[in-house]
Design a protein around this nucleic acid. Sequence first.
RNA 1: GCUCGAGUGGCGGAAUUGGUAGACGCGCUGGAUUCAAAAUCCAGUUCUUUCGGGAGUGUGGGUUCGAUUCCCACCUCGAGUACCA
Length: 941
Amino acid sequence: MKYNFNNIEAKWQKYWAENGTFKADNSSDKPKYYVLDMFPYPSGAGLHVGHPLGYIASDIYARYKRHKGFNVLHPMGYDSFGLPAEQYAIQTGQHPSITTRTNINRYREQLDKIGFSFDWSREVRTSSPEYYKWTQWIFTELFDSWYNLQTDKAEKIEGLISKFKTSGTAEVSAVCDEDANSFTAEQWNSFTEQEQEKILLQYRLTYLAETEVNWCAALGTVLANDEIVNGVSERGGHPVVRKKMMQWSMRISAYADRLLQGLDRIDWPEPLKEIQRNWIGKSVGAQVRFNVLSDQTKDDDYIEVFTTRPDTIFGVSFMTLAPEHPLVDKITTAAQKQAVHDYVKATAKRSERERMADVKNISGVFTGAYAEHPFTKKPVPIWIGDYVLAGYGTGAVMAVPCGDSRDYDFAKHFGLEIPNIFEGVDISEQAYSSKDNCKIANSDFLNGLDYKQGTTKVIAALEELNQGYGKVNFRLRDAVFSRQRYWGEPFPVYYVNELPKMIDKQHLPIELPEVEKYLPTETGEPPLGNANSWAWDTERNEVVGNDKIDNQSVFPLELNTMPGWAGSSWYFNRYMDPINANEFASEDSLNYWQDVDLYIGGSEHATGHLLYARFWQKFLFDRGRLAVDEFAKKLINQGMILGTSAFVYRLEGENTFVSKNLISDKSVTPIHVDVSFVNTSEELDLEAFKNWRPEFKDAQFILEDGKYVVGREVEKMSKSKYNVVNPDDICENYGADTLRMYEMFLGPLEQAKPWNTAGITGVHGFLKKLWKLYFDDNGIQVTDQDPSAESLKTLHKTIRKVEEDIENFSFNTSVSTFMICVNELSAQKCNSKSILEPLAILISPYAPHIAEELWAGLGYNNSISTAEFPVFNQEHLVESTKTYPISFNGKMRFTLDLPMDLSKEEIEKIVMDHEKTKTQLEGRIPKKVIVVPGKIVNIVG
RNA sequence: GCUCGAGUGGCGGAAUUGGUAGACGCGCUGGAUUCAAAAUCCAGUUCUUUCGGGAGUGUGGGUUCGAUUCCCACCUCGAGUACCA
């Protein structure tokens, strides 16, 4: 019987599907274990070999946990709202839902071929109304909540309203807009409903506000900060400009500190946590007020600065405002007006990208105005400079050139004073920016104090003067939640007198309307502006035609849609109870599954998905909907699989291609060529190449040894580089089990690595060899014979190593272990059932199809998937002798087999009397002999 | 610039707490089988060598009986981040 992988794999995939083998129950006597993959966006290109890497790893883990007696939840779904389907719709007019469905079907087919143990009965799609009903619901819950700093959690907005009613803002400590005003209960009660609503928007966890947003004209939408890389859009690299728009925002800043603290409680990769910490950007310091001294302006103007070094306040020799700072116009003196105006204009013209690229050039202008130092009362010149960012802190800094390198450079450049306030520190060459090992000097009441003492003391003094207070600042901004797109979740929002109203939970979902065109309207409204039927009837509680809008009972609906990260911020909870029509998930299922035990996915989601998902989780937890406030205990980032691109070299100006090693000094253009035209010895299939594109039809070739040899380069796997390798072909030619094991064999999971099929025959050969242990030409050849001690040893050391490897996510090394095991058992001619049966279970997480077939061959008629994992027994590994390495000065020179029960002295005697020892020493007398019984002998001298 | 991570044969990569460096696989070489090929099997494969050995894990130093592993300095590559006050 031959190892016919195609038949075997098709057979078992069908069996699993028909028998619901991997269906997880929401209640069980077994302990729960939740293994999750980051769900994919179903793109038109289908899966390439890079996608399944993480899925294979998590599948091995999930299958292993089933063998270990866990009730395993291992679901899969699709993040199916997104730009590519919409772009395709704009180009072709095909509805994005059709494109999406087609792509999902393709993905599903490809995934099925790899033999994953997903519970497909729990599949979710973020674009299905049954799913986004609950995304909309979470949105309304956020709208109905505020963040109470006294209890440090989100609470229902009714609680805030009743506080306003009884005592105004006096008793309220909340996260709210910076410009929120205080008022008394009487004032609140006298406000119109309209006014009250406006105030409440300043407190709600999702709110509508005029926001400075990142507008990307090319994509026709706003982008979140994490969707912008180096000042251009992450997708497509289009320019992004700042623009004020009425937008929904998420008050994620309320959770900044908890998002930071929570990182310490979860087992996520350190670099990823570091990225989140930087993104949240907590800095502890003080807000300080500098009064402006000016003849022309009123005395009550002041500049607020945020500083992390209030202890250095006596080192202030000037102040710098961002050119965009609102006070610039007001305080600039007549003499400086022109210079300041020119500078502001020049910086406004430069794109954010230019400004960032040009860090070296120091620029700025004096405003002519002065501020008063809060302690010395001396005048401090006020400058503007583009090294100060309008968007961070207060958009102004107190410059301490001796303690900050940017202030130092600025001062040097413009010849400003650099007072030294550090005891015994030389600042003639550079600023001293360390907080440690230094005492403050020339600073009045702060002299002799260190950073910590000085900070405490100066904050107290500032508070006394009413010119400052201790403050914690975060870099994390509230997240813009509106997108001017079609293919996203509609907001369950309608507008009464321009104020947003939520549609009640019982009427959700509000489904996406049909539109003729997927582009913005002629008046510049988002694509939903094209819908004819997009108004809310508050009496019938349904979406009706726009012509019915009377602003009495029928009102216009929101035209924006939600961003890509809305649906992915809570999907892991939906998997726990995916078809519940009454709740986002039942309390029982949420309490049972709790959280994700193992989450595997790419590190590129560090500041997007993974931060927003943690935010929503904490919010839903605060509101009593969830049992835990972190959704994933452990997270692993799988490394990217890179493509190995192939190149041909065309002679400049000709249609002639030169083989790689004949180029020498010829002038050639490298051209990407489809990797499927190249065999393992780098030789190009000339016929395939000629037929590839018309322009190559008549191509000429300069060959070496009758072959055309291509060049190679490792790059990201992408369609445009023609280096995409499709998993389907591998499954067809070698089988899914080979693909699974080979992807693991490539190297450590977290590491990026180039895809190279060269080694795949080794893994495939291993599976054939495994097969031959069980089957020969006459069928199964497993016997009930007692196993040899040797075979038991082989088995048990394999059990130990494989179990250890899986627990450590070191899947590459267990593939080697299996190879060694099968090599040894083959050499031992082992066909004992008591060895081969546990071996089949051991390997089943890695190569499930062949394992099922072997299991059936052993006489079982159920699936191997829940067979008990073999138990390691140390007894089989006990040795009576040890092969000692005999080292001289730490270098192993020969080995010696000695009984294990010898004493140190006996070992030393045998070794020293040995002939080879004498040759090694060449008559020298050893200074020392180290004997570690069971380990090593080292002779020094 | 800063913060991480990594440097081991021709290649992908192994090496539990410091204890036989190069497991396993690819590739390569030779052999068996075959009319031939594929497949399969066996042997060899870090470098060097006067065939006794000797050197060797990016470089230089240190700790140790012993270092790929620990410490210090440097070099190279990769990832992330970037005027955050």
